[in-house]
Every structure is written in C-alpha cells, then in structure tokens.
Amino acid sequence: MRDLTPDVRDALVNYLYALADDELLVGHRASEWTGLAPILEADVALSSIAQDEMGHALTFYQLLEALGEGNPDDLAFARGVTDFRNAIFSELPRGDWAFTVVRQYLHDVAERVRLEALANSAYEPLAHVARKLIVEEKYHLLHDRSWVAKLGGATEESHRRMQAALDRAFPHALGLFEPADGEAVRAEAGIAPPERELRDRWLDEVVPFLESATLRVPARRDDRGEWQVLVEPVYGGRRGRHTEYLETLLDAMQMVYRMEPGAKW
C-alpha cells in the first residue's frame, strides 16, 4: 500500500486508536492487581501480562505516530475521555478475580482473532505488528484458559462468581466489535475485515470454551448456523462515549504525566 488517500488514512487512524486504547486500558486494569492478587505467583503472572498489553498499546501508538498523530506518551497521557476509542468493556473496574480472568480471557481471544486477520492487512506496517504481537497471545491465552477452566466449576462460590462475572462482561465484550468509523473504507482497502466477521470467529471460540467451563453464555446458533446473541451489546466506546469509570481511570493514570507534560525521566 503506497500512499494513503485521506479517507483511507482517517479510517486507518480511527482503527488504530481503538486497538491501542483497548490494550492500554485492559493493561492498566490488570496492573491494578499488582500487590493485591490472591496469591503471589498469580500476581507476578498477571502483572507480566499487564506489561505485555502496555507494550502492545505502545506498538499501536507508534503506528499512529508514524501517521502523524503525535508521540505515544502524549497519545496515552494527554488525551481526554471523549478522545478515547476503547470499548467500554476495557474501562470497567477490575472487579473481583473472577471478573478479571473472564475479562482477560474474552479480551485475549478477541485480540488473537483480530491479530490473525490483521497479519494479512494490506497496510504492511500493521500486518508486521500483528505478526509480532500474536506470539505473546499464546501465553496470555494459556494463562486465561487455565484460570477460567479451573474457577468455572471448582466450588459453588467460584462458579457463582464466574457466572456473575460473565453475565456482566459478555454484553460489554460485544462492544469490542463495535466498528470504528470508516469500516467500509478499511474493508475495501484490505486493511481490516468487518467487525462482524471477527465477532463470529470470536464467538466460535469463546462460547464452546465457556460452556465447557460450566458457564452459561447468552449466545447460540440459529437454524442457519448464524450466531445470535441474546443480550444487547454495550456500544459507544468507538464513538468516544464513555462511562465515569474512564474518568477516574484517566485521573489516576494520567496524573503524573500531566503534572509536567514532556518531562524527561
């Protein structure tokens, strides 16, 4: 892909913000467990995963920098609530351990499905990044699947918490597939497939897995084999419409940077 026409560039930029912001916020929420996780080994593992997600966010912000959007520190720490393009799913508070592992699992499957598609993107820098990042998803999914499978059916309490977590997470997780502006342009230019496709591939994987962990998922296939979700997806994030949770998150996350923007460490 040689020169980007303005509308292709805009469609690409919108998409990259969505990807970067999801990674940044999920990583930040996971990092909120550092020092507080149920057991030391789990603390170390989730903290590492949080750092990985931050690294992914940085990689996407660097693609945005190359497209003239500004440096990654400014993009992460100086933008306001309405500038963020993450799904509301990513800004929800960390909840209990059950909610965290359910969210991490749903996020990581979505990320893997997306990166696999983007590995063939017509925009070569993005394809290159996708191929690189997918390597880390292998471990993330190994980690997440182990926790979900074990906690899903272990005890009455763990099952109850996991089901409650999934009930809360699932409608929000569908918001990961809310299209960012410019979807038709991206599909035509071969940059990224439509969100609907990714959502279906995601459902192909998460529904059977969660059911095998004895959890109920509000989704099923109809007579034609198409996925039907039985809950209303929580949209708005891709349009900059967020909850008060993002406000408190950004207050904490951006506080140090905003004290002296551009400071050298």
């Binding site: 080994e41 789990a42 170390v44 593992a45 590492s48 980690h143 182990s146 074990k150």
Partner: peptide, 13 residues
C-alpha cells in the same frame, strides 16, 4: 498445569 503457567512468569520473566 497451573504450576507451568505460573512458573513461566515466576522464573522466565
């Protein structure tokens, strides 16, 4: 299984 998952970060971070 969990020992392997956790050891990966505990010892090969």
């Amino acid at each position: 299984e969990m020992a392997l998952v956790l050891a990966k970060e505990q010892y090969l971070r």
